[in-house]
């Protein structure tokens, strides 16, 4: 099966400091990969790099195309949800947010389609609201919905549960479990990573490791300690 995301001997920077060197992994369609690591280990920078916003060395391909050569293609194929929802919800109402994404994916942005799409995420009661009037959990849901509305092949999630309560986290997890796209999930919430992902990429101290089975990582106290995960 063709990889929709492939990194080979990847190194990337934050400012002038090398964050990670020698990262290699592949993600097949539908794969869910957790990106784990302590604060400042490079999880967010990896997501930015996949979107072509940060420089890198080595190979990084999204759907077979090198990101540095075709950054716009990478952004078209991969939709990202970053931590700060306020900088990503741009339209005057939730309806407009979803309609814009659906239109971008060349679906008809008429009333019924947007409503039907919003219904899949339980967002119909919020359609007329301004994004700034929403709770943190509602903003997350809208962000996720608008990202999926673009029909990306890869969904990049950066701390999607960071400001959610327990119920909100559970609902988001259930929602993500239904998503057919490849998911790259950067998180500190290990229960979410364990529940959703089979594979893990661990970053720390400028190095990286890939665990084909995420349970092997969490069953190894020495590894958890070495990567400063616990």
């Amino acid at each position: 099966m063709n990889a929709c995301l492939k990194a080979d001997d990847l190194s990337f920077w934050r400012g002038e400091r090398a964050v990670v060197s020698g990262l290699s992994f592949t993600a097949a369609p539908g794969d869910r990969i957790a990106v784990l690591g302590a604060n400042g280990s490079g999880k967010t920078t990896l997501i930015r790099t996949i979107l072509g916003f940060s420089p890198y060395r080595g190979t990084l391909e999204v759907e077979g195309r090198e990101v540095r050569d075709r950054p716009k293609e990478a952004r078209k194929a991969a939709a990202a949800v970053f931590g700060d929802a306020d900088t990503q919800l741009l339209m005057p109402t939730v309806y407009d947010e979803l309609a814009f994404s659906l239109k971008a994916a060349e679906e008809r942005a008429g009333g019924p389609d947007v409503r039907a799409f919003a219904g899949r995420f339980g967002l119909v009661p919020l359609l007329d609201r301004h994004p700034s009037q929403l709770s943190s959990g509602e903003k997350r849901k809208v962000l996720l919905a608008q990202s999926l509305g673009r029909r990306p092949s890869i969904l990049l999630l950066d701390e999607p549960t960071s400001d959610l309560d327990a119920r909100g986290s559970r609902r988001l997890r259930e929602m993500l479990a239904q998503v057919p796209q490849t998911i790259i999930l950067a998180t500190h919430h290990y229960d979410l990573a364990m529940a959703l992902c089979r594979k893990a990429v661990v970053l720390g101290g400028g190095k990286a490791a890939v665990y084909e089975d995420i349970r092997r990582l969490f069953d190894d106290p020495a590894a958890l300690d070495r990567w400063e995960l616990l």
Partner: peptide, 29 residues
């Protein structure tokens, strides 16, 4: 910081869209 995050969001969501749509996104942002 927020301006640079917003700019990334616009570039990310606007990738592959026609100019009027990208402009619309930029104006809203």
């Amino acid at each position: 910081r927020l301006a640079s995050e917003t700019s990334r969001a616009v570039r990310s969501r606007g990738a592959g869209l026609r100019l009027p749509q990208r402009l619309k996104l930029t104006i809203h942002a």
